[in-house]
């Protein structure tokens, strides 16, 4: 039984959580520059102060439909393998401590979520999927798997 802080957010209509130690900040997007001829899960690149970050169209992994990120949309900034990414989310709720109950592991979300969900937890009586951020930035291969 562990008690770690998680960021709770909405993604593709579902409640998800990202471990807060992986979250650098949450930003409202400035202009996003599209990256042509690239993996469809990449929504573009954007500037955060002097850094250039890659924006991941997170919901594409789930819905398979690309969505254009409007200016001001919310992105969770995280660093994975030395590169910085913004993960698009619909809405950010709160940062809360959660207890992961391994007993819940027999309940799984639909297969499309599987590559990206590490564990299931409960928050305020609701089920929450804890996201594997690394899988989100590894491109389409994860979808195929």
């Amino acid at each position: 039984m562990t008690n770690i802080l998680y960021l709770i957010a909405d993604l593709a209509g579902s409640l998800v959580a990202i471990e807060s130690s992986q979250v650098e900040s949450i930003v409202h997007l400035p202009d996003v520059v599209p990256v042509p001829n690239c993996d469809p899960s990449v929504a573009g690149i954007f500037a955060l102060r002097s850094r250039v970050l890659t924006l991941i169209d997170t919901q594409f992994h789930i819905t398979g439909v690309q969505k254009i990120a409007p200016k001001g949309a919310l992105a969770v900034v995280t660093e994975i393998a030395g590169h910085q990414y913004g993960l698009l989310v619909d809405k950010v709720h709160d940062v809360v401590p959660m207890t992961i109950e391994h007993a819940e592991s027999k309940i799984r979300p639909p297969a499309v979520w599987n590559p990206y969900v590490e564990q299931i937890a409960t928050h305020g009586g609701e089920l929450v999927m804890i996201l594997n951020t690394e899988a989100l930035v590894s491109g389409q291969t994860a979808l195929a798997a």
Binding site: N37, V42, Q84, S138
Partner: peptide, 10 residues
């Protein structure tokens, strides 16, 4: 600045 592997992949 180096790009993320996803961007550089093509």
């Amino acid at each position: 600045k180096p790009g993320a592997p996803l961007v550089m992949g093509n």
